[in-house]
Amino acid sequence: MAQRSLRDALLNAAASEFHEKGYSATGVAGIAARAGAPKGSFYNHFPSKDDLGVLVVEAYARSRRAEILMEPGADPIDALRRHFTWLRDDLGGDEYTRGCLLGNFGGEVGRTGTKVDDAVRESFDQWFAAITYAVRRAAEENLLPEGTDPDAAARFLGSSWEGAVLLAKVTGSPAPVEDFLAIAFPRVLGHPFAVPPA
């Protein structure tokens, strides 16, 4: 049990270090120190920083609540509202200072062919697929403006969200994210954005 808790401590420490400092600027010694563990213990649990990075990316992607978009029988527009509301509220908890780990890593290690790069792309692919699923369902239920290409609309939503989150991180302001919600929903999906009831 103690070994498992140390592994979890190292994972949590790595997630915080990566989010705050970036992938390249984070070292094994810093991760171990943050976890309160000797540096040598790191390699008892992870073969390399890259392997640990993959685990952190996968855990972060799972935490983004994409399952909201896939709920059977849910109103797809409401599912999109609830998903993006959750993302907004989660990012706002840090006053937008950390941004999206996938976006941060994508800008830093994208197209490098590393394990972490592959994990980031796969995580984005899965998230975009979930958005596309919800938007396609909205199209099938005739909930989108006439002539809307659901796949293009889904790509626009995901890409615009990531851009808004990056600007919010850089400026320290929620305005880019709020602008995304206020414009993307009525203009792209044909429905106003309203915070769904809790």
Rank of each mutant, 00 (worst) to 15 (best):
A153Q: 03
A13H: 03
P197F: 04
E146H: 07
L189P: 00
F84C: 10
L102N: 03
V188G: 03
N44K: 09
H191I: 05
R4F: 13
S160N: 05
F128K: 02
D8M: 06
H45C: 05
G27Y: 08
S24V: 14
F193S: 01
E108N: 09
E71A: 11
I131Y: 12
G147N: 00
T26Y: 05
G107V: 01
G163N: 08
G30L: 11
G93K: 15
A194V: 07
G163R: 11
L167C: 11
W127Y: 14
A198I: 06
G163W: 05
A37P: 08
A35R: 01
A168F: 07
A164G: 09
R65A: 12
V116S: 03
D149F: 12
P150G: 06
D94N: 12
A194P: 00
S63I: 09
I68A: 05
G107Y: 05
E122K: 12
G158L: 06
R187D: 00
F156D: 05
E108I: 12
G190T: 10
A74P: 01
S16D: 13
R81G: 04
A184Y: 01
H83N: 09
D50S: 15
T112I: 09
E58S: 09
R62M: 06
L91T: 02
F185T: 10
S48C: 08
E140K: 15
G110W: 00
S160W: 09
L181Q: 06
E95Q: 13
S48N: 10
K39P: 13
A168D: 04
D118T: 12
D125G: 13
T85N: 10
E67V: 14
L143E: 05
Q3F: 07
A198T: 12
H19W: 13
A2T: 09
T132E: 13
A153M: 07
A35Q: 12
F185H: 02
L10P: 03
Q3I: 12
D50H: 09
L143I: 07
L87C: 10
R88D: 14
G163C: 13
V56Q: 01
R137V: 08
V170D: 10
Q126I: 03
S160A: 13
